[in-house]
């Protein structure tokens, strides 16, 4: 069963809804391609570093907080599900369900950042930052592991924060009452959100599971 989405709001320079839909989805996929290459640069460095000192990497990785990392993985995966529900609900014009699902996504995303904050706090109290005095490792691989850990989780958090802003915008559009005709915005927001989640899904084994 599929419900035809509401008549979309056309923006310049488009005159047909299907063209505009195609352009927005295509444009966002192009952006996702740049994101993949952006993170690709990081994964390349990670692969080289880990090949050079697998042992040191495992020693460093053992200190990563598996519990909080796993909780965060669950939170993000759930947020992907709720945002997909929201997107479908918007297309079906179930406004209340959409609103609830969007708020749930915002809560899950914010909870991820909060858990990450606790995790950072714990890491710092254990001196797990390569430049602070008392950093417990001397192995080259472990130092690089923790450099990468901080770098990429921070970059990921920035991406997630931007994602939260875009999801919050959906709520704003809903208040204005234009979210229905602008369901394409919801669709591309969801695409971006999924990418941020998929990146995390790659980071979870690379950062939390390798030391086990």
């Amino acid at each position: 069963m599929s419900v035809a989405p509401p008549t979309p709001m056309l923006v310049e320079p488009f005159e047909q809804a299907d063209r505009q839909h195609e352009a927005m989805v295509f444009g966002l996929w192009l952006f996702l391609a740049t994101e993949i290459l952006f993170f690709g640069g990081f994964f390349f460095l990670y692969a080289v570093a880990r090949l050079q000192d697998p042992g040191g990497f495992a020693v460093g990785g053992h200190k990563a907080n598996l519990l909080l990392g796993t909780i965060n993985t669950v939170l993000l995966m759930s947020s992907s599900a709720t945002l997909t529900v929201a997107e479908r609900a918007i297309k079906a014009e179930w406004r209340r369900a959409a609103r609830v699902a969007i708020v749930a996504t915002l809560i899950l995303g914010t909870a991820f950042l909060a858990v990450k904050g606790f995790e950072y706090h714990e890491d710092l109290s254990e001196h797990l930052f390569p430049t602070v005095p008392g950093f417990p490792f001397t192995a080259v691989g472990a130092i690089r592991f923790w450099s990468f850990y901080w770098l990429i989780t921070l970059i990921h958090a920035v991406h997630l924060t931007i994602g939260l802003a875009f999801v919050a915008r959906l709520l704003w559009l809903d208040r204005l009452g234009t979210l229905g005709p602008r369901w394409m915005v919801a669709e591309v927001t969801t695409l971006y959100w999924h990418l941020v989640d998929i990146v995390w899904l790659l980071l979870w084994p690379l950062l939390y599971l390798i030391g086990r």
């Binding site: 192009l30 391609a33 740049t34 994101e35 290459l37 952006f38 993170f39 690709g40 640069g41 990081f42 460095l45 390569p130 430049t131 130092i143 690089r144 450099s147 990468f148 901080w150 770098l151 970059i155």
Partner: peptide, 25 residues
């Protein structure tokens, strides 16, 4: 532009991370 520029962005981020945070990349 779409496929090469993001890699430069990552390279610049890494330089900033090393200079700003001291991460020894």
């Amino acid at each position: 532009m779409v496929l090469a520029t993001p890699v430069l962005a990552m390279a610049m981020v890494l330089i900033c991370a090393e200079r700003l945070l001291g991460l020894p990349i």
